[in-house]
Design a protein around this nucleic acid. Sequence first.
DNA 1: ATGTACAAGATTTTT
DNA 2: TCTTGTACAT
Length: 817
Amino acid sequence: MADPLKNVLDDLPAPVPGGIAARARAAAAPDYLSGLNKEQIDAVETLDGPVLVLAGAGTGKTRVLTTRIAHILATGRARPSEILSVTFTNKAAREMKDRVGRMVGEAVEGMPWLGTFHSIGVKILRRHAELVDLKSDFTILDTDDQIRLMKQVIQAADIDEKRWPARLFAAIVDNWKNRGLTPSDLPAGDGAFGDGRGRELYAAYQQRLKTLNAVDFGDLLLENLRLFRTHSDVLARYQDRFRYMLVDEYQDTNVAQYLWLRLLAQRPASSVIPGRSEAANPEPSDTEAGSGFRVRSSGASRNDHENLRKPANIACVGDDDQSIYGWRGAEIDNILRFEKDFPGAKVVRLERNYRSTGHILAAASHLISFNQGRLGKTLHTEGEPGEKVAVTGAWDSEEEARSIAGEIETMGRAGHKLSEIAILVRASFQMREFEDRFVTLGLPYRVIGGPRFYERAEIRDALAYFRSVCSQTDDLAFERIVNVPKRGIGDATVQILHDYGRAHRVSLMESARALSATEELKPKVRQTLRDLVASFDRWRTQLDQISHTELAEVILDESGYTGMWQAERSADASGRLENLKELVRSMEQFENMRGFLEHISLVMDVESGEQQDAVNLMTLHAAKGLEFDTVFLPGWEEGLFPHQRALDDQGRAGLEEERRLAHVGLTRAKKRLRIYFAINRRIHGLWNTTVPSRFLDELPEAHVDVREAASGFSEPRSRFDRVEPFSSGYGTPGWQRAQARKENNNERGRFVKTPVTIEGTVVGTSDASAAQFSRGERVFHQKFGYGLVTDVDGTKLTVDFDKAGQKRVVGNFVERV
DNA sequence: ATGTACAAGATTTTT
DNA sequence: TCTTGTACAT
């Protein structure tokens, strides 16, 4: 049997004359350690054995990690190809590569194992695909494909798709995979999904993937785990190869990633250093990880008598206070447990913050101290105290947006760079009001983390064409474009193709070819299919004849796809055509279409050209890892932040994650931090009175300035357009304060029964008779003022307001006058 | 096969 | 309120 590692080794760059170390040393800035503080140098220089770098926000985490790589190379401890360096996003990987490159020059080009968990997973899996029943040219399904495949499985299992939609099951399976669970790890018959058929469906889905020679994102790691567990020789080779392992954002690793790292961090017998008795063996006999899942130690465990293993040189960098991805499987326990997992691990804390001013840092530290499950760090700064954190209450979300946009406008006029200003929201629906406001004011802004280039429909369609050309067996791609543009091939025809394909065990493309030669289909459909298949055959032969960019244009043209968008007169059609051009342009840097497809199935973002000066608008999640001079944090209200759903579903753990999110938000600011909350917010179209977030009460009074929203200059919509000033201390818990305020207002007949959910209980006024109204009654609404009820529909009323005109409101929000 | 009418659901998101 | 997806008519 061929050596499975053979081709891996072939791909490695040839040894550099004069030695990598020498060259790296020469290329490295002689003072690459200068400018680092003592803690940072310590983290860089601890090269032997496991290290956990516990680094707070703004302490130079990434710098430490990259310098460490440079240091390893410069001291000649490992060749570039012997370093495994994992990050979570392609962006982070790219940045790391750039930074290392700057420090050690070209040597970084020889670092094939610097990348995301997924990109490295693919790389390994392709080499050994046949060992886990895959072909090395397996396709990687994205979420969309995954859901469509799941749909087929659910239909085949005859399960009510209404009760168990495919997208839900796809999400559940994804979650299982994040936790390293395979179908056989699940209890049979138990569990709610599909009336207790979760395991069966999961297995069927995996079976479909195998038939299609495809893997989903979760499989990239899961199949790696399987490979390593079942082929100890392969595992041993990689264990041996990776002399140094570095992991960024360790607090975000999920169970599968953790297990994968653990397997690699075990030392094979070959690396045993005789006589090193102090060496701790990081390999556990058996580790509990997540829901009853056990790591079976593979190959190496057979050498259990051999206790003298050199501990792995694994270095993880992370901040337990920045773990905000629990909801997608990140196990904060991984970082909390590090020292147990890797006995003898050295823990280095980076606590000097280089980013924020004193007040901001104090506010962030105080807030996060309310969390219980944390390793604890005390960040300090030697910089200026700066401005206090400003907390501002606005009457409603509109005023909040108006006020923030106004402040930004003023700052812009005062010469502040807009790109150094960011608005970080909890949920994306909050963005809309800001966008509206910016458009009105003509302030340039950019939304970060919107729908990504490769997720846009037109791009996915084009890619599906390319995929179908490159691989005749890519059924999901074929199905996507078989009727795009519309050719008169509907669901019914596709179903026939599917049936034929399943019966004869051929792909959809083959089914189409076969069926278009028979009498089975209507003449019209038959001809269409025949033409389509002929087109694909033609394009396929052109793969080797013309350049792939040229071919891409040919395909999009001849298929009628470009024509489809040209014919469409909608507003965004031209943008879509522009995107298609951009897609073709981005293909240039690849050698061929196959290489391009391989790349884009993993890399989901594309550089968005021009960097103009614009305000940044994004979610708190998207803001992680970024920093700005000025940060605005709107929407600090109970129910929105912390989000009600997080509290309901996760309880205290959910609250703590929300608090970490708040901490991430606060620590994005370098110089100015402004927090806002609105007293009234429209949720799902209805106005709700809200309560200031409990997180506001967790900010230290000494570092906070409470303000009133500058009311702005807009036309007053009602005489209640102004905020009640409230500057009473933050000593009383927020909800009590709000409650007191509400009651005060009630005395003056201005606020009405407003149920507000706090920690699961409904806090509202006790007047139970409030609900019933009838036509013709005069009512008062806190936002719209006085009006006349013109219609009653259950709890919803139609009211003709004196000033605001006709609105539909919920009865709870108006009061009889 | 495709257009329209209505109901449901509406954190966070990478690969 | 507004978007998205499905049921039904054309």
